[in-house]
Computed example of a mutant assay.
Amino acid sequence: MTTDSTYTYQQIARAIEHLTTHYREQPSLSELAEKANLSEFHFQRLFTEWAGVSPKKFSQYLTLEHAKTRLRNGAPLIDAAYDAGLSGTGRLHDLFVTIEGVTPGQFKQAGSGITLTYAVFDSPFGQYVLGAINATTVGRKIALLHFLHEDDNPETILTAAWPEASLSYDSDLLQPFANQIFPASDNTVSGQAPQPLSVLLRGSAFQLKVWEALLKIPEGQLASYDQIAEFIGQPTASRAVGTAIGSNPVGYLIPCHRVIKKTGLFGGYRWGAERKQAMLGWEAARIDGN
């Protein structure tokens, strides 16, 4: 089922795809509006409501020079965030995420009676399926956040990721998680910091180390695959780092979208290049707007 917010993202994504493909030609507002099937007036308003900045300003965040500047500034901030024990330094969506990592064998040994509760929710970047493990051995922890393409079957995705688990749909149970991951408002209740989100990840020791490193990239900043490899103490493993990033099972919360090529090119993304570009521009707009 396509909701209004999902349709809005789809319209924006078409314009972003055209914008990032043709940014050197500086596409006009009328070109972008045509890609979104909207009038210029409605497109400008819709885009600005979604991104917080105009399409012209947004395009500046997606240029090669802007990406290179973010890369140059990113490494010290990664270290600072790591030293402070924070997942990031951004004000708006600085989610406190704690990882519990287990190897497949370890989880299988303690995996009897696993139930994977799931539901489909909206986000600024389209619909996603959220899954949480609920077992006496681990408590309730987020185990999967997978952005959906048009023809995706959520249950097929969940079963492929957690074949041992039985599935249970319960949007009410997971709604508090969804509210915290993509809050309707940027303001925290009574100025309080968000409660930590606990994530259960199943992967090799190398994958877990890479995924944990991604949490150190502050919102609005970028890191290269080489920088992540250096950060985890394996400077020659940038290709393996890329493979581990590509298999991240928890999109957005573990921000693999903030890792790009050292040349400044954004590169691919498990959930679509235009979604990665949308995330990076959206975060940059919010950071610069603080």
Rank of each mutant, 00 (worst) to 15 (best):
I181M: 08
I181G: 07
P183I: 01
P183L: 01
A184Y: 01
S185N: 10
D186Y: 00
D186Q: 07
D186K: 00
N187P: 00
T188W: 00
T188G: 01
V189K: 03
V189M: 02
G191L: 02
G191A: 01
A193K: 00
P194N: 02
P194T: 04
Q195M: 01
Q195F: 03
P196M: 11
P196S: 10
P196W: 10
P196A: 11
L197P: 03
L197S: 08
S198W: 13
V199E: 14
L200W: 14
L200F: 15
L200S: 13
L201P: 10
R202H: 06
R202C: 13
R202F: 05
R202Y: 02
R202A: 12
G203Y: 12
G203T: 13
S204L: 09
A205P: 12
A205I: 15
A205L: 15
F206H: 09
F206M: 06
F206T: 09
Q207D: 14
Q207E: 15
L208F: 08
K209A: 15
K209E: 15
V210M: 05
V210W: 08
E212Y: 05
A213G: 03
A213Q: 04
L214G: 02
L215H: 01
L215G: 07
L215N: 06
L215M: 06
K216N: 13
I217G: 04
I217R: 02
I217D: 03
P218M: 11
P218D: 03
E219W: 00
G220F: 02
G220Q: 01
G220K: 01
L222T: 07
L222E: 09
L222M: 10
A223R: 10
Y225I: 09
D226H: 11
Q227W: 05
Q227D: 11
I228V: 14
A229I: 07
E230D: 14
E230K: 09
F231T: 04
F231Y: 13
I232S: 05
G233E: 06
Q234I: 09
P235F: 04
P235L: 07
P235V: 07
T236R: 14
A237I: 05
A237D: 13
A237G: 05
S238Y: 12
R239D: 12
A240W: 05
A240M: 06
G242R: 05
G242V: 00
G242C: 01
T243E: 13
I245W: 06
G246K: 03
G246R: 03
G246C: 07
N248F: 04
P249C: 13
P249M: 11
V250E: 09
V250D: 04
G251D: 15
G251L: 14
Y252T: 07
Y252M: 08
Y252P: 03
L253Y: 08
L253D: 03
I254Y: 07
P255N: 06
H257Y: 12
